[in-house]
Design a binder for these strands. Structure first.
Length: 557
RNA sequence: GCGCCCGUAGCUCAGCUGGAUAGAGCGUCGGACUUCGAAUCCGCAGGCCGCAGGUUCGAAUCCUGCCGGGCGUACCA
């Protein structure tokens, strides 16, 4: 069962191809046809600018090309009531209203699988996200990255990609040492020893909790050894416990990574060393001022970058090069990194890095997620990480709920900063779109409950007569339902998860309006059956859409 | 200084990768529950798409330069 949109698209594509072949032109891969829904109803249900884009190849007037295309479109009478050529060369398509209900049958046949596609063809994709240093709990900014990464992975999966979600653990280096020492000092403090707690150490309350935990479990045994001997334990302990906490916070938020990748392993198994040697062999590394530099300017970075410091220690970037080399060695066709926007200066060197390692720039997609401003009732909530005074992701999720938090994180393009207001996130009104969407689902479920109470049939071995759906609002709903797979497709191709919540909000808005103007359960049995069939399809698509977002679809609210 | 991102209705944001007459929600004001859920719906008002050039049949969208905001600019991670 093919949908109106894809039938139409295929029809135009065939016509264009045959037109080009008659002219002896065979570069079909250039043939990208856009099928849009015009803003104005008089311009039809769908429109294409195909004729205009073909002018360059065919060297003819766009309107003449449009005419040729229309004439070559086979089988259009079954699908279309009318075709018009308008303006500079648009082709406007008016779909036969009875065709809209085709989508309902497709939805009923596919159920949970409606929206699933296979154009990803099993392409192996890795999405790396969150990857927060295990030095403290996740904050709200990490939450946004978590939501974007998780949902992007879901979207790609439903489009036929093979996706792994990965967390890169920065479990080595100076910050880990500082973390361990912070815990050690809090430990001493806890046992009544006077300490001078440095300003650049981790001062958060959670470190004091951890210190008390160490005292409870291990008593004062680390007073007997020197700081140097004690530190490895404290570093390990702090890192492990904090990472555990991060896992829990992510689980509560509904995010589960497939792979947890240790940075330290790259140091220990020689991968870092091998990466440096490989780059040296290809002449991408040189020495200067006693340090080793990576020649990232060769690929457009503004300056070269140090990989091995004069004191012999490797930099974070060196490890990241080894990490990305490792990713490709694991045979990912595409790697997606999701970073906080404050790391944007890091992009050019990373892109240079993968090219130096022999990969094409398109093999690495870096998504920058802008900052989150946390508000309460319109007023900024103070968030000073240094002072250890920040609102954690966990606190936000506990307060507003997983569903609201996830949805709000996704109702903005990633590269746009986000104001997250705790009060509106809890409001059950229209300025909080989560409940708007969920309410539609609950409402639909409720209709089915009532129908069953009244003994009205609510399941169908064969579809009811759908010709009785003659309201324009019904056609519009069915048309929008048919767009769902296409929305997922564009979200996947552009790596733009925000399209899904926007689509759902639009769909549900049309439904609420319809619901207020029409009765699903009426005196007319045939009409009732058809409308229930439509309602069931709506319920399915809302549920599928919310599932992609990792948001629940409640039957009652 | 240089680099990246962002300037669209009073506020928060979409705008399908260059299409036709600019789109939602909130907020203001006014209306709709004896009916399947009013966490809903309907209506009114609101715009020099930051400014100025350029590219072409056509620009909110692409290019250049300004103005304004955010973030970067380590032999930190």
């Amino acid at each position: 069962m093919s949908l109106v949109r894809s039938r139409l698209h295929a029809m135009i594509h065939r016509a264009a191809r045959s037109l080009l072949q008659d002219q002896g032109i065979h570069n079909e891969e250039d043939l990208v046809l856009e099928l849009e829904i015009p803003k104005i109803a008089e311009h039809g249900d769908y429109a294409t600018n195909a004729a205009m884009t073909l002018t360059r190849l065919l060297r003819k007037h766009p309107r003449a090309i449009a005419q040729d295309l229309v004439e070559r479109m086979e089988g259009r009478d079954d699908l279309l009531a009318k075709t018009e050529i308008a303006g500079p060369g648009f082709i406007n398509f008016f779909v036969r209203p009875e065709r809209w209900s085709d989508v309902l049958q497709a939805i009923h046949a596919q159920r949970d699988a409606f929206g699933r596609q296979d154009f990803g063809k099993g392409t192996r994709v890795q999405v790396e996200f969150v990857s927060a240093n295990p030095t403290g709990p996740l904050h709200i900014g990490h939450g946004r990255g978590a939501a974007v990464g998780d949902v992007l992975a879901n979207i790609l999966k439903t489009c036929g990609y093979t996706v792994d979600k990965e967390y890169y653990i920065n479990d080595t280096g100076k910050q880990m040492d500082t973390l361990g020492r912070s815990l050690y000092l809090r430990y001493l403090e806890c046992l009544g020893r006077p300490v001078d707690f440095p300003d650049d150490h981790y001062k958060g309350e959670y470190m004091k909790d951890l210190a008390r935990e160490v005292v409870d479990r291990f008593g004062d045994r680390y007073l007997a050894v020197s700081e140097q001997e004690a530190l490895p334990f404290f570093t390990q302990y702090a890192g492990d416990r904090i990472l555990e906490g991060i896992r829990e916070d992510l689980a509560v938020f509904g995010v589960f990574h497939d792979i947890w990748f240790s940075e330290r392993s790259l140091h220990e198994n020689g991968a870092l060393q091998r990466t440096m040697e490989a780059l040296e062999r290809s002449g991408m590394i040189y020495e200067h001022d006693g340090a080793k530099w990576f020649r990232s300017t060769a690929y457009g970075d503004e300056k070269d970058r140090v990989v091995v410091r004069a004191n012999g220690a490797t930099t974070y970037f060196a490890a990241d090069l080894a990490y990305h080399k490792n990713k490709y060695e694991r045979h990912y066709d595409m790697v997606i990194d999701i970073w906080g926007a404050d790391h944007h200066g890091y992009v050019p060197r990373m892109m240079a890095g993968i090219q130096a390692l022999g990969r094409h720039p398109s093999d690495l997609r870096i998504i920058l997620v802008q900052l989150v401003n946390l508000l309460r009732g319109g007023k900024p909530v103070a968030m000073s990480t240094r002072a250890g005074e920040f609102v954690t992701l966990r606190e936000v999720v506990d307060e507003v709920g997983k569903d609201a938090a996830r949805f709000i994180f996704l109702t903005r393009r990633s590269d746009s900063p986000l104001d997250f207001d705790l009060e509106t996130a809890k409001k059950h009104s229209n300025d909080n779109p989560v409940y708007y969407v969920q309410y539609a689902h609950a409402r639909l479920c409720s209709v089915f409950e009532v129908a069953e109470e009244r003994g009205v049939p609510t399941s169908w071995a064969t579809p009811p007569d759908l010709r009785v759906l003659t309201e324009p609002a019904e056609w519009d709903l069915m048309k929008q339902l048919g767009e769902f797979p296409y929305v997922l497709e564009t979200a996947a191709r552009n790596l733009e998860p925000h399209r899904v919540p926007y689509y759902l909000t639009d769909l549900v808005s049309a439904f609420h309006s319809y619901y207020n103007h029409n009765r699903i359960l009426s005196e007319d049995p045939a009409l009732t059956q058809a409308r229930l069939y439509l309602a069931d399809a709506l319920r399915t698509v809302i549920r599928n859409g919310l599932a992609v977002l990792g948001v629940s679809a409640p039957q009652k609210m």
